[in-house]
Design a protein around this nucleic acid. Sequence first.
DNA 1: TACTATTTAATTTTT
DNA 2: TTAAATAGTA
Length: 719
Amino acid sequence: MDVSPILESLNDAQRQAVTSPAEPMLVIAGAGSGKTRVLVHRAAWLIDVVGIAPQSLLAVTFTNKAAAEMRGRIEALLGMPVNHLWIGTFHGLAHRLLRRHWREARLPQNFQIIDSDDQLRLIKRLLKSLEIDDSRWVPREIQYFINAQKDEGLRHQHLDDDGDLDRRQMISLYAAYAELCERGGLVDFAELLLRAHELWRDNPELLAHYRRRFSHLLVDEFQDTNAIQYAWLRLLAGDTGVPFVVGDDDQSIYRWRGARVEHILRFQKDFPAAKIVKLEQNYRSTATILGAANALIANNNSRMGKNLWTDGADGETIKLYAAYNERDEADFVIARLRDWIDQGNVRADAAVLYRSNAQSRVLEEGLINAGIPYRVYGGLRFFERAEIKDALAYLRLISNRDDDSAFERVVNRPTRGIGARTVEAMRAHTRANSCSMWRAAGAIASDELNSRAANAVLAFLNLIESMARETSGLDLQDKVDHAIHASGLIDFFRKDRGERGETRVENLMELVSAAKSFTPDLAEEMSPLDEFLSHAALEAGEGQADAWDDCVQLMTMHSAKGLEFPLVFLCGMEDGLFPHQRSIADPGGLEEERRLCYVGITRAKQILYMTYAEQRRLHGMDKLSHPSRFIAEVPDEFIEEIRPRVQVSRPVRSARRSKSSALQEHPGIRLGQRVRHRKFGDGVILNCEGQGAHTRVEVNFETAGTKWLVLSYANLDLM
DNA sequence: TACTATTTAATTTTT
DNA sequence: TTAAATAGTA
């Protein structure tokens, strides 16, 4: 057999991993070392050379996008489709199992998946119905608590309050939430994983079947698995399954979501026979960029340890720019982008990365002014838009009247005279009789309510019933089309004047075409409508703008994981912003921030800029800041500071010129500089204005408060 | 019930 | 600053 296409492009370490015998394998793959390629080639090797049937392989990825890409690459390598190969996210695979075995999983056949937004609403409603003060019991925190427990594989029955009353309340809210989901046939994201785990744990013959079927398990981004995902894998592998897991402990950046790097160590304990291969040769970045990344990450204590190397050139030094403020930072980035584009480069090859989304704003304004096309990743995605979720809620009610989450969402949307009081009455009835909102609505309409409210409620019930009747024979797209019209949503948003209403109507139309192009593939297990609804929850769809347009790419460092760009900017390199204030105190949190920085640096192939602002407007307040400690952790030899104020290449706005020149006239005087005053004591320079002998500075003294002083009289000592 | 004014709080995000 | 949630008013 000719194995050359599968092996020829691999280096020794990669080849060793790909061709390893049927034994557990742990691949520690540094950034840019060909991680995905190893997985793809391993799958092809197993199928084409070892002769494993595609249906015996299970491949798990972290995102739907990664799953699609992996399937595509395997098929391209093998030159044939691999339809029976299961590739998906943990959630997608769990969902698939639960649909197949809904009886054993003790779920209704038409169970619906709720996303985190639905989940939060559900919790808010729960608090209201129990008359619990939501300022003391913050819905987000309850949501976090519930998900964290589920991620650890724990149900409320497993939890002990330890005599802690707050914890007891949390647990009982968890229980109440679980009951609410149970009643409505609702499954949240964490529940998918938990149920799928319990499904196998409690049905040995089912587990045995899947163990027989899946002899080889391939796992991507292993460092980001949480406890329940790991347990699920462990269960499936048993003593015979061959796990092949790939990850990088230095790129674990989702600890706050339950991911645990420790699973890499756990894996070695659980599978003592496991072979370990480290991929340390980097094919992406220059030696300079790698050197910086290596030096930075060496400051972390909890690492397995590895050192990326390249046989490529040193490349350019990393450029560090100290901006005056966030606008100056944006101007700088845009000027460099201009140069880049003017040199004939592709805009899409440049990425501007930042720690938090709020930072994109100034950059966007600048890019718009400069007329440079850009694309922001993240933000609201298609299936998460309010109008789309409204339409989906109608469809969910058509599928299942007891879906309270959907019911509450649209009972008065568009407004039809069912106000807060009426809904409150329904909730009361719901609680007293532990029935769904739908049943409660029917019950109280006939007795409790006054005729006006009752009519409104009955009209709503009739509307849903008639929508269900009229759509029963239709195919998916016509169902959706009928729903958005009959529900009154289209008319409702049409009345919304201006652009917003218009785009909402367009989005609803877009939903119809999404339904049209949707191809169900679990047809035996569920109705096409239910499958479409699940798809909408599990795969929220792309954000804005077309990826293939030639745009500068703006995104957080989190969303940049897995991507690479010839030119990269890391903006807002300031202590408090990055590392983020809320992570600084906790050593684990700080190490995670450092890993995030490592991810950011290693996105760059050729040129890397780091920028920080000495003064930044945050939450409407100007704050002085210090360069990120991460900058100091990169050896000087890799960094070149750019001092822009010495040679200003473009016109600067007058206000700023006066400010910066005022600063230049007084060497040593700069914002953030610590100074000592004979009378007022120690302080920090906050602001500066005026020129020459009139230059005044604003100093925040530790004991005397904030004062404006004329520099020439104040006799400040620099410290 | 629906609109407007005021208050409050503010990472990272995929499923 | 700004977005969202809440309280108050027509």
